[in-house]
Nucleic acid binder design. Structure first.
Length: 203
DNA sequence: CACCAGGCCCTAT
DNA sequence: ATAGGGCATGGT
């Protein structure tokens, strides 16, 4: 089955992504909302989404759901706030690294628009704790760049449908990006969300 | 009680 | 290049 058809099939089956995905796919996003997506993309690494929500609520309730407050927050205090997101010590560190990059190295979310996608991706990947999936999630859902996010669910789907034998991240990303006629971030957001939703419900 | 959830880094081969 | 261990909570 072709990739375009898989999208249509998932779209027909699930419609518009709900729950957290309605927020991640929201547009336009305010700067504050983009920061939340960035924070969540770190917290959700190998974590149950419900546990991440507990953390996001805590950050929100204490007024720390922003890159600036994360930078200002003491490491030990941040660890406590995000405890339920698993691996909380390293994630507290990762959040600070990303916040430092965006606020201090880039000069804030606003300035990101001027950076081309390839450079931005390279810079994100150079940060400790940001790998392919996290970098691309940030690029796609926070900065609205047309890069296809590959995750475990995408790999499973590719295996099921027998789309290719090369399951490396780069190859799968190429496969999806070249198979879709519209190089459109809105489509990429929607498709990836549907893949995850499908993966969770059909496990 | 076991298992695992939208990764990533480090080390050893 | 790639496999394997560490990280370390809360829900089912």
């Amino acid at each position: 089955m072709e990739i375009e058809e898989i999208y249509k099939e998932l779209k027909l089956k699930y419609g518009k992504p709900a729950g957290q995905w309605s927020f991640w796919c929201k547009r336009p996003k305010t700067f504050q909302e983009k920061e939340r997506v960035i924070i969540e993309s770190i917290l959700t690494q190998r974590a149950n989404w419900k546990n991440v929500q507990l953390t996001v609520d805590k950050l929100s309730n204490t007024g720390k759901l922003s890159l600036k407050e994360i930078l200002n927050c003491k490491q030990s205090e941040l660890e406590l706030l995000i405890k339920s997101s698993v691996f909380f010590r390293i994630k507290a560190e990762r959040l600070k690294i990303v916040a430092d990059y965006i606020l201090n190295k880039c000069g804030g979310i606003k300035k990101i628009k001027a950076i081309d996608t390839d450079s931005l991706r390279q810079q994100l990947l150079s940060l400790k704790g940001v790998g392919d999936e996290t970098a691309d999630s940030i690029l796609l859902y926070a900065f609205e760049r047309a890069v296809f996010v590959i995750d475990e669910y995408t790999k499973r789907l590719v295996k099921e449908k027998n789309l290719t034998n090369n399951l490396s991240y780069g190859n799968l990303q190429q496969l999806f990006e070249t198979s879709l006629n519209n190089k459109d971030y809105i489509l990429y957001q929607d498709f990836h969300a549907l893949i995850v939703i499908n993966g969770k419900t059909t496990k």
